[in-house]
Amino acid sequence: MEDADRDFPGKVRPGDIIVAGKNFGCGSSREHAPIAIKGAGVQAVVAKSFARIFYRNAFNIGLPIFESPDLPDEVEEGDEIEIDADGGVIKDASRGAEFRAEPIPPFMQGLIAAGGLVEWTKKKLASR
Protein backbone atom coordinates (compact mmCIF):
# COMPACT_ATOMS: atom_id res chain seq x y z
CA MET A 1 0.00 0.00 0.00
CA GLU A 2 3.02 2.27 0.44
CA ASP A 3 3.21 2.74 -3.34
CA ALA A 4 -0.34 4.16 -3.36
CA ASP A 5 -0.04 6.18 -0.15
CA ARG A 6 3.28 6.44 1.64
CA ASP A 7 1.60 7.27 4.97
CA PHE A 8 -0.90 4.39 4.78
CA PRO A 9 0.79 2.11 7.34
CA GLY A 10 0.74 4.90 9.96
CA LYS A 11 -2.81 6.01 9.22
CA VAL A 12 -4.73 2.76 8.97
CA ARG A 13 -6.89 1.89 12.01
CA PRO A 14 -8.72 -1.31 12.92
CA GLY A 15 -12.20 -1.25 11.38
CA ASP A 16 -11.22 1.00 8.48
CA ILE A 17 -12.73 0.44 5.06
CA ILE A 18 -10.60 0.91 1.94
CA VAL A 19 -12.46 2.53 -0.96
CA ALA A 20 -10.68 2.10 -4.30
CA GLY A 21 -11.06 2.45 -8.06
CA LYS A 22 -10.72 -0.02 -10.89
CA ASN A 23 -8.69 -3.24 -10.94
CA PHE A 24 -7.72 -3.05 -7.24
CA GLY A 25 -5.02 -5.60 -6.41
CA CYS A 26 -3.63 -5.73 -9.95
CA GLY A 27 -0.30 -7.53 -10.09
CA SER A 28 0.45 -11.06 -9.12
CA SER A 29 -1.07 -14.11 -7.57
CA ARG A 30 0.55 -13.46 -4.24
CA GLU A 31 -1.69 -13.79 -1.26
CA HIS A 32 0.58 -11.51 0.75
CA ALA A 33 -1.53 -8.55 -0.51
CA PRO A 34 -4.93 -9.32 1.08
CA ILE A 35 -3.20 -10.90 4.11
CA ALA A 36 -1.40 -7.61 4.79
CA ILE A 37 -4.61 -5.57 4.40
CA LYS A 38 -6.54 -7.88 6.71
CA GLY A 39 -3.63 -7.93 9.14
CA ALA A 40 -3.67 -4.11 9.31
CA GLY A 41 -7.20 -4.37 10.68
CA VAL A 42 -9.04 -3.31 7.54
CA GLN A 43 -12.64 -4.50 7.83
CA ALA A 44 -13.56 -4.48 4.16
CA VAL A 45 -12.48 -3.21 0.74
CA VAL A 46 -14.90 -1.55 -1.66
CA ALA A 47 -13.76 -0.96 -5.25
CA LYS A 48 -15.15 -0.37 -8.72
CA SER A 49 -13.51 -3.66 -9.72
CA PHE A 50 -10.86 -6.06 -8.47
CA ALA A 51 -8.03 -7.90 -10.20
CA ARG A 52 -9.33 -11.44 -10.33
CA ILE A 53 -6.68 -13.28 -8.30
CA PHE A 54 -6.86 -10.65 -5.57
CA TYR A 55 -10.65 -11.11 -5.63
CA ARG A 56 -10.51 -14.85 -4.97
CA ASN A 57 -7.61 -14.57 -2.53
CA ALA A 58 -9.63 -12.08 -0.44
CA PHE A 59 -12.55 -14.50 -0.08
CA ASN A 60 -10.20 -17.42 0.55
CA ILE A 61 -8.53 -15.69 3.48
CA GLY A 62 -11.77 -14.18 4.81
CA LEU A 63 -11.32 -10.50 3.87
CA PRO A 64 -14.75 -9.11 2.88
CA ILE A 65 -14.66 -7.21 -0.41
CA PHE A 66 -17.45 -5.49 -2.33
CA GLU A 67 -17.55 -4.62 -5.97
CA SER A 68 -19.44 -1.43 -6.77
CA PRO A 69 -19.05 -0.30 -10.40
CA ASP A 70 -21.19 2.83 -9.64
CA LEU A 71 -18.87 4.00 -6.88
CA PRO A 72 -18.18 7.68 -7.57
CA ASP A 73 -14.72 9.18 -7.45
CA GLU A 74 -15.96 11.78 -4.94
CA VAL A 75 -15.70 9.45 -1.92
CA GLU A 76 -12.90 10.93 0.14
CA GLU A 77 -10.55 9.78 2.83
CA GLY A 78 -12.25 10.05 6.22
CA ASP A 79 -15.81 9.58 4.92
CA GLU A 80 -17.93 7.32 7.07
CA ILE A 81 -18.86 4.23 5.05
CA GLU A 82 -21.56 1.73 5.97
CA ILE A 83 -21.93 -1.59 4.19
CA ASP A 84 -25.16 -3.58 4.14
CA ALA A 85 -23.74 -6.89 2.96
CA ASP A 86 -27.09 -8.68 2.70
CA GLY A 87 -28.88 -5.85 0.92
CA GLY A 88 -25.91 -5.07 -1.34
CA VAL A 89 -25.89 -1.38 -0.42
CA ILE A 90 -22.90 0.84 0.38
CA LYS A 91 -23.67 4.12 2.15
CA ASP A 92 -21.39 7.12 2.35
CA ALA A 93 -22.89 8.53 5.57
CA SER A 94 -20.69 11.64 5.37
CA ARG A 95 -22.31 12.58 2.05
CA GLY A 96 -25.68 10.93 2.43
CA ALA A 97 -25.11 8.94 -0.75
CA GLU A 98 -25.90 5.30 -1.50
CA PHE A 99 -24.36 2.97 -4.04
CA ARG A 100 -25.23 -0.49 -5.22
CA ALA A 101 -22.79 -3.32 -4.54
CA GLU A 102 -22.71 -6.52 -6.57
CA PRO A 103 -24.40 -9.20 -4.45
CA ILE A 104 -22.02 -11.76 -2.94
CA PRO A 105 -23.06 -15.24 -4.11
CA PRO A 106 -24.16 -17.61 -1.31
CA PHE A 107 -21.14 -19.88 -1.90
CA MET A 108 -18.74 -17.04 -1.20
CA GLN A 109 -20.75 -15.80 1.75
CA GLY A 110 -20.24 -19.33 3.05
CA LEU A 111 -16.48 -19.01 2.58
CA ILE A 112 -16.43 -15.76 4.57
CA ALA A 113 -18.73 -17.23 7.24
CA ALA A 114 -16.48 -20.29 7.61
CA GLY A 115 -13.51 -17.96 8.13
CA GLY A 116 -11.92 -18.63 4.75
CA LEU A 117 -11.08 -21.54 2.47
CA VAL A 118 -8.90 -23.44 4.96
CA GLU A 119 -11.74 -23.79 7.48
CA TRP A 120 -14.24 -24.46 4.69
CA THR A 121 -12.02 -27.24 3.29
CA LYS A 122 -11.55 -28.75 6.74
CA LYS A 123 -15.32 -29.08 7.07
CA LYS A 124 -15.62 -30.48 3.58
CA LEU A 125 -12.98 -33.15 4.26
CA ALA A 126 -14.58 -33.99 7.61
CA SER A 127 -17.96 -34.52 5.94
CA ARG A 128 -16.58 -37.03 3.42
Binding site: S29, R30, E31, I53, R56, N57, I61, T121, L125
Partner: peptide, 18 residues
Protein backbone atom coordinates in the same frame (compact mmCIF):
# COMPACT_ATOMS: atom_id res chain seq x y z
CA UNK B 1 -5.41 -19.96 -14.49
CA UNK B 2 -3.49 -18.38 -11.65
CA UNK B 3 -4.76 -18.71 -8.08
CA UNK B 4 -3.55 -17.91 -4.59
CA UNK B 5 -1.57 -20.10 -2.23
CA UNK B 6 -4.65 -20.99 -0.13
CA UNK B 7 -6.49 -22.13 -3.26
CA UNK B 8 -3.51 -24.29 -4.02
CA UNK B 9 -3.42 -25.72 -0.49
CA UNK B 10 -7.10 -26.67 -0.67
CA UNK B 11 -6.60 -28.22 -4.12
CA UNK B 12 -3.56 -30.20 -2.94
CA UNK B 13 -5.81 -31.67 -0.25
CA UNK B 14 -8.98 -32.26 -2.29
CA UNK B 15 -8.03 -32.21 -5.98
CA UNK B 16 -10.73 -29.59 -6.47
CA UNK B 17 -11.05 -25.83 -6.76
CA UNK B 18 -13.92 -23.32 -6.95
Amino acid sequence: TGVGSTDLAAAMATGECW
